[in-house]
Amino acid sequence: MTNPPYIRPIPASWWLRQGRYVRYMIREATCLFIGLHALVLLVGVYRLSQGRDAFDAFLAALWSPAGQVMGAVIVLMAVVHSVTWFNLTPKAMPLWIGDRKVPGWIIVGGHYGGWIVVSAVVLFLAGGLS
């Protein structure tokens, strides 16, 4: 009697087995915080529609210790999210000049440059730089 080829089960904790999977899961998890931030913005818009008092209360909540911790975590996660994805861009978008491949760091650097420019514009429009 011959047993069939053996299929090793994959445990739910498979992603804890190797550092590369853990890093991948962290990268994927950062999008939850990006989502959370979007939710906060939506709540803010909703509160604004309810009048000045409601919006002030919303801002006060953001500046509360808990709100500050949440904000810090979101910023941290947004940075991790951006950095990990920017670092992958040379794979997805290779550039060729003639028969030479543009080095990955230039592509990554271009993204960081773009990020800085866009952030500066946004801050300017929001009055943060004036």
Binding site: R20, L88, K91, A92, P94
Partner: peptide, 26 residues
């Protein structure tokens, strides 16, 4: 593919399948 990228890390011939897949997606 969710771009785990492990394939390209272990490839003994530097094929970079993760890159191939992302480029195909685009």
């Amino acid at each position: 593919c969710t771009f785990v990228g492990a394939c390209s890390e272990v490839c003994p011939k530097n094929v970079d399948p993760a890159a191939a897949i992302q480029q195909t997606k685009i």
